[in-house]
């Protein structure tokens, strides 16, 4: 479904991604783990066209997207829930969700999806008229994921959704990610520093170090790998 080939991305002179290649199949949860500054967020921003790659190719369902603008890439069905959630603070919860459905015209479908989301996260339903900026960190993460879902994505990119959340909420977020994958057959690319949790729900995983893919395997094998255990699982 998504194929990234020998991707090189830069911030001015900083060479952030060095020949990154990866692949996701329809219906999978694939995780990308790695230390702070490894290049995980840059990978997602390059896929979405915000940090266009200097070299390399990205194909989505067979179509080259590495020269497309972010809004065109989004329109194909790729949505990112970025690091730090980036909720529109001065928009209400409902308006934030409306922004997720920005390109949709099917009013009835939008209403139905909003109901689905309010079922998924009843906390958001209670706060629907509140401004995004007044929500707690956990609620903002729920809203960020929900806003992404409002576009009915084919591919959902999640950047560190558990960052800064209390353990109960981390549990809830990971369960929800699994549920979204199972109920809607949404393909999920999950970037995480919480390697333990993400490898438990993922089918496959990639390990990134200093802008390079250092390892790739099934999630089960990575959980057992001595190298991963030592570096990312704190065992």
């Amino acid at each position: 479904m998504l194929k990234v080939k020998n991707l090189h991305s830069y911030y001015g002179g900083i060479h952030a991604l060095k020949s990154v290649s990866l692949e996701l199949s329809q219906g999978e949860i694939v995780t990308l783990i790695g230390a702070n500054g490894a290049g995980k967020s840059t990978t997602l921003m390059s896929i979405c066209g915000i940090v266009p790659p200097r070299y390399g190719e990205i194909f989505f369902m067979g179509q080259p997207i590495h020269h497309m603008s972010p809004d065109k890439i989004f329109a194909l069905g790729i949505v990112q829930v970025p690091e730090g959630r980036r909720i529109f603070a001065d928009l209400t919860v409902t308006e934030n969700l409306d922004m997720g459905a920005y390109l949709r015209n099917d009013k009835a479908g939008i209403r139905k999806d909003m109901e689905y989301i309010f079922n998924l996260f009843p906390r958001l339903a209670e706060r629907r008229r509140q401004l995004g900026g007044t929500l707690s960190g956990g609620e903002q993460q729920m809203l960020a994921i929900s806003r992404g879902l409002m576009s009915r994505p084919k591919l959902l990119l999640l950047d560190e959704p558990s960052l800064g959340l209390a353990p109960v909420l981390v549990q809830l977020i990971f369960e929800t990610i699994q549920k979204i994958n199972q109920e809607n057959k949404t393909t999920i690319f999950l970037v995480e520093q919480n390697a333990n949790m993400s490898l438990r729900i993922a089918h496959r995983g990639y390990v990134m170090e200093s802008g390079v893919i250092a390892l790739e395997d099934t999630a089960a094998n990575l959980l057992k790998s001595e190298k991963v255990k030592a570096a990312y699982l704190g065992l």
Binding site: C48, I50, P70, D71, F88, L91, G100
Partner: peptide
């Protein structure tokens, strides 16, 4: 309003 608050996020949601 979304662009005024966070241009990149608006782009990630398909806003031209």
């Amino acid at each position: 309003r979304a662009v005024a608050q966070d241009k990149t996020m608006a782009m990630l949601l398909g806003v031209n």
